[in-house]
């Protein structure tokens, strides 16, 4: 149970609600403000869900399976729902932190629109539903990995790593890396090397993507006592780590081009994407905070934007390669 939560009756009381026994106004038990559909939608972290949908869809499309289109689309829906469930569980557990940080203060739980117990119930219900339905729709291998992903994000990342180690971004990013493998498993029932390469690509991409953002946005993790790398090891070390992960990312990226899901076209695109990414990461590594402040964090912002293009283009080229059939691949 997140600390800092207040009893629902207290949370619902507002100045002017009337506190004498002469008042006929009875404040409804529960959160301060009635939650709308939009609040429950927000609990599912739609932005993260959209990334999961995209990467899972790519995993499903490039896998050498022949899943029926309707079952494929439905499987993606369950994967998205599972990602949303883990988001709701994360918001339930992190409500105390979310109240402290400006960026997250208006989320449904800290804003008092959704009761923490409702978010927990929703997260648990959707977790069970999504895993069961994916098992029945596709197969139990995919369902197992979806369950593992939810567990990893909600328990390993949210409840444990996020508050204890600066490795939180790196290891926590693994949860966001699993969807393409789940999509692959839904189509084929297995998780071969190529599926793991897709996982590796997102896993290596996450740290430089997030650290570039952390270097130009004033995230108040310090106030929330979250041990982010920029806080625990300093901004210069964050720049160095981002560069090292960018190098690792380039290696995994080129490896995918030589695997069964790659081909000459993937290699060409991967080389171009990585060349720009590495140049940006190197520039970010070699400069100081003073230089960064002077030009309005232009390099950091540029790298962050390119990281979004990078992931989208890289995953799209896998689909193009697969769609070309005999003309694609090596």
């Amino acid at each position: 149970m997140p600390s800092g939560s207040m009893p629902s009756a207290m949370a619902s009381w507002r100045p002017g609600d009337g506190v004498t026994d002469a008042s006929l106004h009875i404040a409804p038990a529960g959160p301060a403000e009635e939650a709308g559909l939009r609040d429950y939608w927000q609990l599912l972290k739609p932005r993260l869900m959209s990334l999961s949908v995209f990467t899972a869809l790519v995993g499903l499309l490039v896998a050498p399976g022949d899943i029926h289109p309707f079952l494929g689309a439905t499987s993606i829906l369950w994967i998205a729902l599972g990602a949303g469930a883990s988001g709701a569980l994360n918001m339930w557990f992190d409500a105390d932190i979310d109240r402290v940080m400006k960026r997250t203060r208006s989320r449904p739980i800290p804003a008092g629109r959704v009761a923490p117990s409702d978010a927990l119930a929703m997260g648990l219900f959707l977790s069970v539903l999504s895993v069961t339905m994916l098992g029945l729709t596709a197969n139990w291998v995919a369902a197992f990995w979806l369950a593992f992903t939810i567990f990893f994000y909600a328990v390993i990342y949210s409840m444990w790593l996020k508050r204890t180690t600066s490795w939180n971004t790196v290891i926590g990013g693994l949860a966001g890396a699993f969807p393409p493998m789940i999509g692959w498993a839904a189509a084929t029932g297995g998780t071969p090397l190529e599926a793991w390469l897709l996982v590796g690509l997102i896993f290596m991409w996450t740290p430089p993507h997030f650290w570039a953002l952390a270097l130009f946005v004033k995230l108040d993790y310090h106030a929330a006592r979250i041990p982010m790398l920029t806080v625990t090891h300093g901004r210069a070390e964050t720049r160095r780590q981002a560069w090292l992960y960018a190098l690792g990312l380039a290696l995994v990226s080129v490896a995918t081009a030589f695997s069964a899901i790659g081909g000459p076209m993937t290699l060409a695109v991967a080389l171009a994407l990585n060349a720009v990414f590495l140049r940006g990461a190197w520039s970010m590594y070699r400069r100081t905070d003073a230089e960064s402040e002077a030009d309005g964090h232009a390099v950091e912002k540029g790298l962050f934007k390119w990281s979004l293009v990078y992931l989208f283009a890289h995953f799209t080229i896998f689909v193009v390669e697969a769609a070309m059939g005999a003309y694609g691949g090596w």
Partner: peptide, 13 residues
């Protein structure tokens, strides 16, 4: 609708 659709597809295939 989804459950119905999945059932139809599963039976047909």
């Amino acid at each position: 609708v989804i459950i119905f659709g999945v059932t139809v597809v599963k039976i047909r295939t």
